Amino acid sequence: MLSPSAPLFRFGVVADPQYAALEPNFSLNRYPAKSLAKLAEAIAEFNRHDLAFVVTLGDIIDGGWESFDAVLPVYETLRHERHFLLGNHDFAVAAEHLTKVANRLGMPSAFYDFAHAGYRFIALDGNEISLFAPPEGDPRRAEAKALMKALHEAGAPNSHRWNAAVSDTQYTWLAAKLLEAKVAGEKTIVMNHYPIFPRNSHNALDSDRMLTLLAEHDHVVAYLSGHNHEGNFGVMDGTYFLNFKGMVDTEDSNAYSIVSVYEDRLEIAGFGREESRLLTLQGA
Rank of each mutant, 00 (worst) to 15 (best):
F111I: 10
G238I: 06
D125S: 09
L178A: 02
M1G: 11
E76R: 15
A15C: 03
A44L: 14
F111M: 08
D62N: 13
Y262R: 00
D206H: 05
A52P: 09
E186N: 06
G64L: 09
R82Y: 04
L22A: 09
L278K: 08
H80D: 07
A269M: 01
Y19E: 03
E96H: 12
E230I: 11
A102P: 04
D69K: 10
Y223D: 05
S130D: 09
I268R: 11
R265Q: 10
A70V: 08
R82S: 11
W173Y: 12
A117V: 08
F197P: 02
E263A: 08
H219C: 08
K177E: 12
L2M: 07
P157H: 14
G272N: 12
A21G: 14
G12H: 09
Q18G: 07
M1E: 07
A92Q: 12
S35F: 09
L36V: 13
G118E: 14
A40G: 08
D138P: 00
A95C: 03
M210N: 03
Q18W: 00
T212M: 10
R277L: 15
V190S: 12
V13Y: 01
F91D: 02
V93E: 02
V166F: 03
G87D: 04
I122N: 12
N29R: 15
A33K: 10
Y75W: 15
V259P: 01
S3D: 02
